[in-house]
Design a binder for these strands. Sequence first.
DNA 1: TAAGGTTGGTAAAATGTTTTACTAAACTAG
DNA 2: CTAGTTTAGTAAAACATTTTACCAACCTTA
Lengths: 347, 347
Amino acid sequence: MRTTVKDVAKAVGLSTTTVSLVLNNKPNRIPEATRKLVLKAAKELNYRPNHIAVSMVTKKTHTIGLILPDISNLYFSELAKVIEEQCHKYGYNVLYGNTNGTLEHEFEYLNLFVDRSVDAIIMTVSSNYSEKEVNRLYEIAETNNVPIMMVDRALDDPRFMSVLLDQKLGGFLATSYLINLGHKKIACITGPKDLRISIERLEGYKSALEDAGLPFDRSLVIEGDFSVDSGSRALSYILGQNATAVFSLNDMMAIGVYRECRRYHLNIPQDLSIVGFDDIFIDEFLEPPLSTIAQPVQEIGKYAVKKMMSVLEEKKNLCTDAGNTKIFKPALKVRGSAIKFMEKKQI
Amino acid sequence: MRTTVKDVAKAVGLSTTTVSLVLNNKPNRIPEATRKLVLKAAKELNYRPNHIAVSMVTKKTHTIGLILPDISNLYFSELAKVIEEQCHKYGYNVLYGNTNGTLEHEFEYLNLFVDRSVDAIIMTVSSNYSEKEVNRLYEIAETNNVPIMMVDRALDDPRFMSVLLDQKLGGFLATSYLINLGHKKIACITGPKDLRISIERLEGYKSALEDAGLPFDRSLVIEGDFSVDSGSRALSYILGQNATAVFSLNDMMAIGVYRECRRYHLNIPQDLSIVGFDDIFIDEFLEPPLSTIAQPVQEIGKYAVKKMMSVLEEKKNLCTDAGNTKIFKPALKVRGSAIKFMEKKQI
DNA sequence: TAAGGTTGGTAAAATGTTTTACTAAACTAG
DNA sequence: CTAGTTTAGTAAAACATTTTACCAACCTTA
């Protein structure tokens, strides 16, 4: 059995109050002699505070809930890792929940976690929230007095902190790069089309086109679902539109395109240039290495928990303050999957 | 503020005892009328039990601690996902800790988690434990009365449950495959050489060689550290030994070999056949797709938590019963990275 | 020497539940 | 009508802490 404060108190013949006072070294006038005595006994008995009991009275669990769509996804597993690492540094533990991108699961974990009195929640919402759901979310935050932070994907609501990526800029960067290589017919494989990040990345695509004086051709965009398979499925359509380059809204789908190209004996980048989005680990090991838009995951994760910790310390009103959206800038990472456009067919 | 049992009790004019009794529907003689009344009030007030307080009295947190070396590693992130998923099914939440493979971190999280009264711990040890450490581990398990399960990598101690892979068989399968393709000089890139899985996989390699009447040549094995870079570094040595095939003890290092081959303009599998170990997600998207040894991660994860749940329910003596090691069989997954041996140089 | 201050503590409440042991009222049987 | 039994419920303890409010005993000081 574990040693309790009572055991320590008994061992030194003092009250639990005294023991607790020195163990938490409260600014109380406790003479050095007693202090040492208690400390020694605690160490000898290998006393470790029962965290549950502490939480019961302090109302703090030093736990944060992390809710992500899919931890087996490379981007999220890396994010999870940084977040856990950082929380650990601050003395916090993380309870983890996987939603598979469904709204029910999101709320399920939200409730589970507040029932367990987590001090804060960091989540990435994967579905689209109606106003009703946003309110439901806010109510949970409020009645439990728990700050909620959105990471990677925002809710269109100023009441929640968010740390995001400038998705539009990413789309712009990727597309401009292909344009500068001389491509005129650039296809785009999107994610689910009413998902915020799909929309924003696509906006970047459009605006790059516009900046270059190129027309936006709706028939060049095809909807995917961020999975490898949906990338594969998109290829034949793209080819049918005579596109010479593709901007894939994530790397997974780009990998799907790679796979399908192999089946058709097409070469990347000679037959088709492609740039992805996310910069997942494997990109550099593909043949050819995939050029992509890199998100600063490390920074995002670090910033998110740092910010959360400061909120937790200052105990300021948790959700409802403005200026609590931080936006990180993505960067183009050039590798080998795109090449200057050449008028092959004419040759 | 959250509603408490007290609030509910006050609302219906009954004692907290009664409320608790119906809410946990204990087999108590509580008339249907009262029962309904309480339930209705609880629903109306949106009552949800405070898990901390419940844990305080029941001594159960319905939380399990998951300690892994590196969740951004594809294999572990998938494992983590299954485990979380399964735990969730049983009504358990998971506290997650990342050790980066260091002993200090392993014990740190172990202590952190028992302080938080997790009901059980599932971990993969990544360092080598001396007897002292095994005892220390056992002591933690015992004084906290918390069952510990080793997954993927075992401790050489029957006191802990483990669910493992038959690593030796994996090594045997991979090597036999290369032998059957006609290769005689098969190199092996190992992990850190005193790590259990390195040793076991290497044993499989040796035994396949022996079965085929091939000599074991120490100069054909080179130590890596399971990282991509260490795979890359191994290549030139391997080539120097005139090996025609390589068995890489994990896929990451195989990827390193791929990368280095590209630098030297060598073709896989024409110039070098290779088979890896782990079957991580990206294997099928490499060029050529990597043949490897597949671990049944899903089954492993499912079995691990199922077993743990049964232990938790039966409350039998937790660590110390024999026959609590389950070994899963790996399988060879043939893709395109190995080919029949041809006497090129002679041609 | 008595009033006031300081020193070194402690008892008890509080946290939100579950659970044990008890009881008052109503009912039943003889 | 009374003794026993069932019904419907409750008070209080317990869980392991922290924290508040208090108190003796000793020391100053005038």
